[in-house]
């Protein structure tokens, strides 16, 4: 089952498309980063020069900001696409009938599709992290990681991590971010189990995610925010503190897993009991 799904995924070229999109996104981020640096130095210095002059902008800063934006805006679209393609795509192409007319239980079928989509999500997170770091460190430059309070709310006070410590935190961010990405993936599988078309499933998943994300970022919805999974999505930022609040990190991770389990339970119930018209 998983072997077949991986073969189909590879032949679909969706992973290559995702890789191309990530590279394009990072190229745009790099361009934006340099443009910002040029502006800040009045056009009098290139970016590497500002780093060598101990600016807090360096490859690690680039990587964390690139990963932050990519994780919150790009990867959810890819996992929604994958979730949508898994059930609704097979439904609209009628290839689900090929699975259902074989002696394979719906539970196994669902878990197989979930495993492949999760695997892809995990690889995409790693891909975005590694590529951001590689581009950041090779193109922008090396150095320690300094984060300052700002509009992105990466931190509420200055944080300083040595280069090797920062790289270790990037490694920790991989599983943590994968757990976070599991929630929109589960949501897309839930929507996919109801939709009859992959386009609808992907569109609705992305729309719901973006609406929830925007709502969770607006302070008017203070009381509502804890109940939205998107409010906890960027919990992995905690890893980039000098002193990591591990209990808080695990609590947020557990909340996200709770949301994911709820979405998956509903999706599985729907998939198990629905009719194939």
């Amino acid at each position: 089952m998983i072997q077949l799904e991986i073969l189909r995924l590879w032949r679909s070229r969706r992973p290559l498309l995702a890789e191309a999109a990530i590279l394009f996104f990072l190229a745009m981020m790099l361009l934006g980063f340099y443009t910002y640096a040029q502006t800040k130095t009045g056009g009098g210095a290139d970016f590497r020069y500002t780093f060598e002059n101990r600016s807090y902008f360096n490859g690690l800063t680039f990587a964390i900001y690139a990963f932050y934006f990519g994780f919150l805006l790009i990867l959810p679209i890819f996992v929604a696409t994958e979730g949508g393609a898994q059930i609704a795509g097979d439904t609209s192409r009628r290839t689900l009938l090929l699975f259902l007319t074989r002696p394979v239980g719906r539970g196994r079928l669902f878990l197989g599709k979930l495993a492949v989509a999760t695997g892809l999500g995990c690889l995409l997170v790693a891909d975005l992290l590694i590529t951001s770091l590689l581009i950041g460190l090779l193109v922008v430059g090396w150095g320690d990681l300094d984060l300052y309070p700002g509009v992105l709310q990466m931190t509420d006070r200055h944080q300083h991590l040595g280069q090797s410590q920062a790289l270790l935190r990037f490694a920790y961010a991989w599983p943590a971010a994968t757990v976070a990405l599991f929630a929109p993936l589960s949501l897309s599988l839930l929507i996919s189990s109801w939709a009859r078309s992959a386009v609808n499933a992907v569109g609705v998943s992305v729309a719901v995610y973006l609406v929830l994300y925007v709502v969770s970022e607006i302070h008017f919805f203070q009381d509502l925010r804890p109940w939205l999974f998107t409010s906890h999505m960027a919990y992995w930022r905690e890893l980039f503190r000098e002193e990591v609040d591990w209990p808080s990190l695990f609590r947020d991770g557990a909340k996200l897993m709770g949301f994911s389990c709820l979405f998956l339970a509903l999706a599985f119930h729907r998939f198990r009991t629905r009719e194939e018209r």
């Binding site: 189909r8 032949r11 009628r94 290839t95 009938l97 090929l98 007319t101 074989r102 002696p103 394979v104």
Partner: peptide, 16 residues
């Protein structure tokens, strides 16, 4: 499904 097989029309197949 271990003992019965179905073939639907139009044939659903994995295109790639």
């Amino acid at each position: 499904m271990e003992r019965v097989r179905f073939a639907f029309a139009p044939p659903p197949l994995f295109e790639p």
